[in-house]
């Protein structure tokens, strides 16, 4: 198969994200994880394709559905799982939780909880790249539900006006909580929002992780050349409810099954299984993923909790201001 080595790498990461989250869901039901837990299962091809299209010096910003891109950018499973468990060894020291994964080392600037508010923030990182000429590109992910809110448009408006090196990736999983696309926006082809800002655009279905990578790369390179932002709408689907408390009664079983049949992870695996070499390699990767995820659970369980002195120490730099 083409690019067998990359295919295996991408396969491993997609499998890792899925298994990491399946185990996180289990830990949640055991009470080891609290608050909100929004799973990315079904959407893995986007984070992994994106991570393979970006350079290490590029930046990413996303929503509360943030485990996938964090792992794909290089956060360890241990740091991710420990964060979910609220442990001090977690990526945000157990202070952020599922919605607020941060990993400065891998230029992963969060995990954000307020719909749309992170788009201007991401545009700010892109602004800094342009200002300093560091050559970095920022990629910001947002949901279909965020396409209607003001901050999203202010972020795009400024990014387009100032030709900032940014790629807006709309992960259109067709629902915002229980609201289907048709009920939440008048024009359901959300890439058309780009037209209003004179931005380049693209739109496709996330069924093939290579396609995700290659099409995002086009947008990234455009940004890097100083030709301004692109809005890329990627159609996808979340297999689980919005969060752990959502039974997702607003969609039919058939609809979910139909999307699962076109699962990008299974598709990649089927391609790998077509040759005996890559099949054996994929099986070995499955085993290594299982070991990594099991270790992350063990690590998270065994890790210490953050202590109260961290609270003031992380509110301001230096002396606490009253």
């Amino acid at each position: 198969m083409k690019e067998a080595k990359t295919a295996l790498e991408m396969y491993r990461m997609m499998q890792l994200i899925r298994r990491f989250e399946e185990e996180a869901a289990r830990a949640y039901s055991l009470g080891k994880i609290g608050g909100f837990l929004h799973l990315y299962i079904g959407q893995e091809a986007i984070a992994v394709g994106a991570a393979h299209a970006l350079e290490a010096t590029d930046s990413v910003v996303t929503t509360y559905r943030d485990h996938g891109i964090a792992l794909a950018r290089g956060m360890t499973s241990n740091a991710g799982m420990a964060e979910l468990f609220g442990k001090v060894t977690g990526c945000s020291k157990g202070l952020g939780g599922s919605m607020h994964f941060f990993d400065k080392e891998h230029r992963m600037y969060g995990g954000h909880g307020i719909i749309g508010s992170h788009l201007p923030l991401a545009a700010g990182i892109a602004f800094a790249s342009k200002y300093t000429g560091d050559g970095g590109v920022t990629m910001v992910f947002y949901g279909d539900g965020a396409a209607s809110i003001g901050a999203t448009h202010e972020g795009m408006s400024l990014a387009a006006l100032w030709k900032l090196p940014i790629v807006f990736v709309c992960e259109n999983n067709q629902y915002s909580m229980g609201t289907s696309l048709e009920r939440s926006i008048s024009v359901t082809d959300m890439s058309t929002k780009a037209d209003a800002y004179g931005m380049a655009k693209d739109r496709f279905v996330a069924e093939d992780v290579f396609e995700v990578r290659d099409r995002l790369k086009v947008a990234i390179e455009r940004a890097r050349r100083g030709e301004g932002p692109t809005l890329v709408e990627i159609l996808t689907y979340r297999y689980r409810g919005h969060s752990m408390s959502d039974p997702a009664k607003y969609r039919t079983k058939e609809e979910v099954e139909d999307h699962k049949r076109r699962d990008a992870l299974n598709r990649l695996r089927a391609d790998l299984d077509a040759s005996t070499d890559t099949r054996a390699a994929a099986e070995a990767l499955d085993a290594s993923v299982e070991a990594e995820v099991a270790e992350s659970i063990r690590f998270a369980d065994a890790s210490p909790e953050p202590t109260a002195d961290l609270l003031e120490a992380t509110t301001y730099v230096g002396e606490f201001a009253r």
């Binding site: 609290g34 608050g35 609220g86 442990k87 945000s92 157990g94 202070l95 952020g96 939780g97 607020h100 909790e305 953050p306 109260a308 961290l310 609270l311 003031e312 992380t314 509110t315 606490f320 009253r322």
Partner: peptide, 16 residues
């Protein structure tokens, strides 16, 4: 509430 943003960790949250 203590004079800090709310932490995620369950014990610290109860502390705050």
């Amino acid at each position: 509430t203590l004079d800090v943003p709310m932490p995620y960790n369950a014990k610290l949250e109860q502390h705050v």
